[in-house]
Design a protein around this nucleic acid. Structure first.
Lengths: 129, 129
DNA sequence: CAGAATCCTAAAAGATACTG
DNA sequence: CAGTATCTTTTAGGATTCTG
């Protein structure tokens, strides 16, 4: 079966208006790529779907970085049609939990973060006579 | 008493060779600044000690960003000698735990991360005949 | 399909000097 | 003391085109 969990059309839009969130994981895309691999190995082209804003070059960069850190493995199958598969290593998988904690915190405090920014950006009103 | 927990001379050196760690919190310094405020309010000049590599300009920027997100508060006391104090807000404080989880993960997997990078960077040896 | 190569822009960071 | 103002560098990221 080629039936896997479908990936959303734009994960960035959905998860990470990063102008708002005061932190990401290091670079712009690594965390998102990791999440895309949560449900199992994905091919390069599969990853491009939920990350339409990432150019192939940047996606490659990101994957290389994750590979270098031992979080993601890259396997080019003998069968050419299977393409190249990226998957989380055990190490990468072990990172899911800490990440979830952070995402949980963001979800929980989303409103507060928004409010704080609005207050900060608001025109400083002085003595409303 | 002005006796507070002393701050280390270079937190960046100590904690975050960020070339290694595949993630930081958004920008280069925010996470570190937050950690510096863990034990209580600090003045601008106090923060400069554990972060000697941060220029005043960048430190200001970082603090403004944290303030904007509602994580840090800035209070200029009436008493000029007390200077300006930065402190974690409750929101900022609530972030400590998630951060600790991530740092814990890094600490726990430090060796693996290092090894992975060394392997990746190593000259690709082929059939050592 | 899975990228590599090239070029370009924008944003973050840093150095340095100066000010209320 | 707590910044601000400039200027320059660095780096990430993106657009586009091309290739094994």
């Amino acid at each position: 079966m080629t039936v896997r969990q479908p990936l959303p059309p734009d994960l960035f839009e959905e998860l990470c208006p990063s102008s708002l969130v005061p932190f990401r994981f290091g670079d712009k895309w690594s965390a998102l790529v990791i999440r895309c691999l949560e449900d199992g190995p994905r091919r390069f082209s599969e990853l491009r779907v939920p990350l339409p804003r990432v150019t192939p070059k940047v996606l490659t960069q990101t994957l290389r970085g994750l590979e270098r850190s031992g979080l993601v493995s890259r396997t080019a199958h003998a069968d050419p049609a299977s393409g190249v598969e990226y998957a989380l290593t055990p190490l990468g998988r072990s990172l899911l939990e800490p990440m979830q904690v952070v995402y949980g915190w963001v979800a929980e405090h989303w409103e507060e973060l928004l409010d704080a920014q609005e207050r900060y950006d608001a025109p400083p009103l002085r003595s409303p006579a």
